[in-house]
């Protein structure tokens, strides 16, 4: 992996001090850092990790819902779901491209994902046993993703910010489509209503965990906020999501599985119960219901088709030479 930066060996040299000053000024003025600009190594590394993890989440996130593509219960639902899963592949592509502007390499990042050296959002390690899960994922998981990602449209790193603008627009379609499926199912049979409630019961807490650990256990947040690659703390975003979602649940006619959920008129927020962070850590550490299966499929897509990629490379090389 080669990074297109200036020589970074002379740490503390006047040159680097000047560059650091310029970088700090850019951040302070809320302007964008672009790929050719100098940036501190910590900034680059943190960004590569964040963007890669985001890209991996988009790609692994295709699987839980993708499992329903073949069995979607109407042709229209099949088209909606196929378009959504395809969008997620597109999101993965933009994000890997953004990571490549930082000197990373897509194939290398994919290897790191498969070898467990980089993470993806642990929400995608939960199973999707019912079609209602497709609607609930759109509503809650895409909904939580939007809350996380809208602020990133103002990320200090230009390519990431621009990718996020496009991604967020599409995520908001996904959220509406998911919610609309649930509305339709709630108007259907008793069995369908029960399916929706059951799916909400299973996905509510994991979707709150999507915002990451609480602020007092999130040591990197302060540095990321200072660098402008994070705009709000985990707890702020989680609260925003809850406040947005509770009225939607009421309109839908489902109960959120939290007896402590209550409106707090003083603060103007919905208060919610304690999150089981033990489960979060367990799933993140690889012990979720579907971790092994998700990675196995990604590995199979890479390994079973390696001969295809080799063929495309060999063909391109031959025909490049032929043309020259």
């Amino acid at each position: 992996m080669s990074a297109p930066t200036l020589d970074r060996s002379a740490t503390g040299s006047p040159d680097e001090a000047t560059l650091q000053e310029q970088f700090d000024a850019t951040i302070a003025a809320d302007r964008r850092i672009e790929p050719r600009d100098w940036m501190p190594e910590g900034y680059r590394k943190t960004l590569v990790r964040q963007v890669a993890q985001h890209a991996h989440s988009e790609i692994i996130g295709m699987q839980p819902e993708g499992d329903w593509l073949l069995a979607a219960p109407s042709l229209r639902r099949k088209a909606v779901l196929l378009a959504k899963v395809q969008d997620e592949a597109g999101h993965g592509l933009y994000l890997y491209s953004a990571a490549e502007t930082l000197g990373a390499d897509r194939a290398d990042l994919t290897d790191k994902l498969i070898e467990g050296r980089q993470k993806y959002s642990s929400i995608f390690n939960y199973p999707t046993p019912a079609y209602a899960d497709v609607g609930v994922i759109g509503w809650l998981v895409d909904g939580a993703a939007i809350c996380n990602q809208v602020p990133l449209c103002r990320s200090s790193y230009g390519p990431y910010a621009r990718a996020m603008i496009r991604v967020c627009k599409e995520e908001s379609f996904h959220q509406r489509q998911g919610y609309e499926l649930l509305m339709t199912m709630m108007r259907g049979t008793d069995e369908q209503r029960a399916m929706v409630q059951d799916a909400v019961d299973r996905w509510w807490w994991p979707s709150l965990m999507m915002f990451g650990p609480p602020d007092d256990e999130s040591p990197n947040t302060a540095q990321s906020m200072a660098w402008g690659i994070k705009r709000h703390t985990n707890d702020e975003l989680r609260q925003r999501f809850v406040d947005m979602t509770v009225p939607q649940a009421q309109a839908l006619g489902v109960t959120l599985p939290d007896p402590d959920l209550a409106w707090d008129a003083d603060s103007g927020h919905w208060r919610f119960g304690a999150i089981d962070w033990e489960e979060f850590r367990r799933v993140l550490a690889g012990d979720g219901p579907k971790n092994a299966e998700r990675i196995a499929r990604r590995r199979a897509a890479r390994d079973d088709n390696a001969w295809v990629v080799e063929a495309a490379t060999a063909y391109a090389r031959k025909h490049e030479r032929g043309a020259a």
Partner: peptide, 9 residues
């Protein structure tokens, strides 16, 4: 059937 199983994104 190829979705999530294709050779490239």
């Amino acid at each position: 059937q190829w979705i999530t199983r294709a050779p490239e994104l």
